[in-house]
Design a protein around this nucleic acid. Structure first.
Lengths: 235, 235
DNA sequence: ACCTGAACACCGTTCAAGT
DNA sequence: ACCTGAACACCGTTCAAGT
């Protein structure tokens, strides 16, 4: 009758064994290509030619997967830094490295703060703390100062992630997006938003990355001013 | 004839007319009571004794609702501040007000950066910009300085939101949670995380709010150091 | 141990139909 | 204009069954 047709054979078994690493890599590719919402379990099974259970055998749940992907990116970034630089320059390199990593993987920006006990955030704190000590920041001022830097970096990271989300919808590119925001600010009611109204004009030609680094320098200047070594260690 | 039997009557009409305001208020109550995941359209229809369409008639979608609830909280906070304070103190009050608002409504912490064109963030930028001008920060340094403060505040806000999410699961309270984190840090491998290992001991008795304010002061010190009025306005 | 995929318990959103 | 609620098109996660 009609059963000549190929009977619905099972999907062929994967040739390469599955592992958390392989899954995390595939998830990262999906996230980079299409944004956070594109990471669905369904999309992963298709890309990896496997079933749901196989994935859940290596990974606790979707959050665990997002966290592992973030740890991977941040960890690689932090350990990849030159270790012999002058401390102030090392701190700037670390900050810029984080900025660039999050610029390349914006979904990771929100993820770092989402599960604060994960290696991604621990690595950042650790690295910043170490550099601050090299900068002669007094021991008792290190945790607080590191906290300020970390929170500033996470704030910028979150904004970058939000911008990327906004860009993912349309096919507008980054500079067109900035121009739109600038125009919108310039058109804000000058009575309610006089400050932003003025700033709108300057927003168009500002460099996120440069601005970010200026912020890091500003905070470092604050740390040095407030915690000048020896400032209140002597009577 | 036979219509004596109660026919499955429709749900009674709401007595009070629906409005965006009423919906936003109900959403805020759900969010405060049970966290971000508790805000489902279904839960809203139950609480408001209405249907899905009624809600979508006043609100674009779930994101719009979250954004409007955040705008409401931040807007009320910003406009509620005393307007006659000394500028430095005004800046500290604003920062503390934001901290407390986000502490009371942690879900708003992540929301502020999520849609950066919404009034919540604009109000914050505007207010900070105004105060910085009163502080005699030179005009061209205002946008950058405001950006540093805003990003720091958003970073802390995001962390608070993450902590609240972690607390929502179990019934652990805040100090127990901090103690857990402190213990975990203290137990970290001292070889990989020497800096955190040391900090773990101090984490237990630190006051988030106080630490946050110290961070604001540190950044203000940085702004004053880097942009001392007249510093490079004169030749 | 490792994997498959149907089934379950949810979501946000739409829309023809009601008042 | 304002509202109702069944229906649609998705989700993440589980689990009996396979190898």
């Amino acid at each position: 009758m009609e059963l000549m047709a190929t009977k619905p054979r099972r999907a062929p078994r994967r040739t390469q064994a599955l592992s958390k690493d392989v899954i995390v890599r595939a998830a990262t590719e999906l996230l980079d290509a299409e944004g956070e919402n594109a990471l669905t379990l369904r999309a992963l099974t298709v890309r990896l030619a496997t079933g749901y259970g196989a994935i859940y055998h290596h990974v606790a749940d979707r959050d665990d997967l997002l966290g592992a992907a973030t740890d991977d990116i941040i960890g690689r970034m932090v350990t990849g830094l030159a270790t012999d630089a002058e401390p102030r320059q090392a701190l700037r390199s670390l900050a810029l490295g984080l900025f660039d990593a999050i610029d390349a993987h914006p979904w990771a920006g929100t993820q770092i703060s989402r599960e604060p006990w994960r290696p991604a955030l621990l690595d950042i704190y650790e690295s910043i703390g170490r550099h601050l000590r090299s900068l002669q920041v007094p021991e008792r001022a290190v945790p607080g100062s590191a906290g300020v830097l970390v929170n500033y970096i996470l704030g910028v990271a979150g904004q970058n992630a939000a911008n990327a989300r906004a860009l993912a919808d349309g096919k507008t590119d980054r500079s067109a997006f900035l121009a739109t925001v600038a125009t919108r600010w310039a058109h804000l009611d000058p009575a309610r938003y006089p400050s932003l109204h003025k700033a709108g004009a300057h927003l168009r030609d500002h460099d996120d990355r440069e601005q970010f680094l200026a912020g890091v320098d500003l905070i470092l200047a604050g740390i040095e001013t407030v915690h000048r070594p020896g400032k209140d260690d002597l009577p």
